[in-house]
Design a protein around this nucleic acid. Structure first.
Lengths: 205, 205, 205, 205
DNA sequence: CATGAATGAGCATTCATTCAT
DNA sequence: TATGAATGAATGCTCATTCAT
């Protein structure tokens, strides 16, 4: 291993060290209380060092968001590989996102941070990275639907569009969890979610 | 007009003056840059005066959110009253939310602020007010569907559930507007939205 | 009853109404959280009205302090009147102050506020009123001692001085309650207090 | 001297610079008027810088309190080391506290701040540090008494208890300085103090 | 590479008091 | 008498970022 490689490796190690610290904070006190100096303290590094490895706070958030998406993706990939029916796959994927929003709330929050906040400007590069990480999930859904169509299980002209609609619905509905107890007086939010998923799947049968 | 009425009127005027200032800020620099002292400056009032009329910052946000919802509601109410088909009504409502998210982006942001942020605590009263303001919109949709079912145009056992799914889908998809240019490479976001709306309506035909 | 008397009576009623409010706050949230506007709200009066009846916040505090001292005084007066020995009287008085500091903590705090805070300036009149209210308590102690001397139970040339020393010791020791758990590692504060009282009494035997 | 040492030294200098500023304020306008921003201004530093060196305002107060206690302690230690009688030592210690409360009034105030205010919460660690600083003074008194007992000069079963009573009396009586001119009509406060000290010492003879 | 000191604008909120009505 | 609107300084504290070493 040459000097270059070792340097690169060390750099990666430091980056991970910083990310570890940020993740610890994310999970211990939530997204709102992450600050660079807290990360530095947690990572046992100087503040300046953080800035050497990440241009700014946003970059760290992006890295965490990628982690979150990766976790979600791997779950969904498992489902994709299962030997179960197409419809069942979609149902399980939907369920897994619901669970993710609850069990990995902090990761969900940070994904949501990029998706829902009215923040205007990201460097194009960054934005690309953020967005593309989620794309793979949509592609899985698309593939399931497309394959279902091939197999004659589903009937849908544009699996790509559908996959986005599918995910958008799930995402929107999860936000409505907040309305439990007020708008959703008698409705169980989970029931509502399941109902919607079935409805969605029904549209391509 | 007695002294009492005049006082009450003046008080209302001041409240509006403050809200005007907050709205101006909301529309000029976005929700993230609204602070009490900026509102005070904009309104040409002392900071303390703001607190005399609104208990805290959140209350001002709520007032703005209510404004936004009211605008959206009135648009949707118009559509509801139109003498057009049930399906057409739903289509137009969906369209109007899309437009709202673009043309009244700042109002959309503040509504979204209450719906999407991982924020911790609201006084129950406040939360109720926030949530319930949106409820009327859902009820219109429910009524359209329910009436459609009565008329034999639609087929849906639970119009209440459907209305929430409908809105959730719209809401979630609007968030995906951000993905234009990255994930949505070739897709037009608007086309996708329309596609989804038609799909949704199709499920209750 | 003439107009003058009625007016005076009404004025007194209002003053009490204000004091009631202040006392309620004192006992519900403690001395630190008493503010004029809170008093006004509690009393269902305007802020300006408070200032009509009390020149400033301090005046209200003084009134509360007087109440506290009055309560303490009446307890001590009871003990004074009891048909028990001189020594027993002193013991019970000391005990009653200890209890007062615990059971009427809020009154104790406000008395302490005037006695311990480094605040410099009070109007002479005010200061006189504050200080003199406590004087009666000291006089009781002095009388007990003086009478004890007469009866041959005690031996003390200057009962006046002793009464102040007696009270000063109690007061100082109560402050040390805070040291429980740190400086007073193994000592029970109450035991220490009792020990000191006995010691004190012993000096005049 | 290495870089590390120099850095540490500079850091200490800055901490002192801040403390100097705080002390200046303490001595010019009293404890009540110390605020972080005033300290920053006085120290010609940014507010943030203050917080870099002291976690919060309380920490600065503690530092000042420790200074005060240290001054008092060193005086008392001197007396302890003097080759004078046991009784004389106690007398002089009492006198030195009296003088301290007059000549170092601001330090006395800040010590008193921690001892007398009904303040709610301190980090346990902090509280420990505050309380323990005073402990050393009590231990000196205890040792004098204990030694006096050994030498047959004093007669006291529990020198530890006595030392606290001794100090509590002094402390409480100093508070009564405020009553000069009102309650203490004809009494000289100083005379009263001396009287009490002699009385106290007498109890262990 | 790594550090960590320094910044100062920024934050939400409180408060005693005044004064025109 | 009584009101309550208005004030604005003041509070403790946070934070992303910079930069000299």
């Amino acid at each position: 291993m040459g000097v270059k490689e070792r340097k690169a490796l060390e750099k990666q190690i430091r980056r991970n060290q910083i990310l570890d610290a940020a993740r610890t904070l994310l999970f211990s006190t939530g997204i709102d209380s992450i600050s660079i100096s807290k990360i530095a303290e947690q990572a046992e590094l100087g503040v300046g060092t953080i800035y050497f490895y990440y241009k700014n706070k946003e970059q760290i958030f992006v890295a965490l968001q990628q982690e979150g998406v990766a976790i979600l993706y791997s779950t969904i990939l498992q489902i994709f590989k299962n030997k179960i029916g197409h419809q069942e796959k979609l149902t399980q994927i939907a369920l897994s996102y619901y669970r993710f929003s609850e069990e990995q709330k902090n990761y969900f929050d940070i994904i949501n941070y990029f998706l829902s906040s009215p923040i205007v400007f990201f460097e194009p590069n960054l934005k690309n990275r953020i967005d593309m990480s989620g794309r793979k999930i949509l592609l899985i859904i698309r593939d399931i639907v497309a394959d279902g169509v091939l197999q004659g299980v589903f009937n849908e002209k544009d699996p790509g569009k559908f996959s986005i609609m599918f995910w958008g619905t799930l995402h929107g509905l999860i936000h409505f969890k907040k309305l439990e107890g007020t708008v959703l007086e008698n409705e169980s939010h989970k029931e509502l979610y399941d109902y919607s998923v079935q409805k969605l799947i029904h549209t391509i049968k």
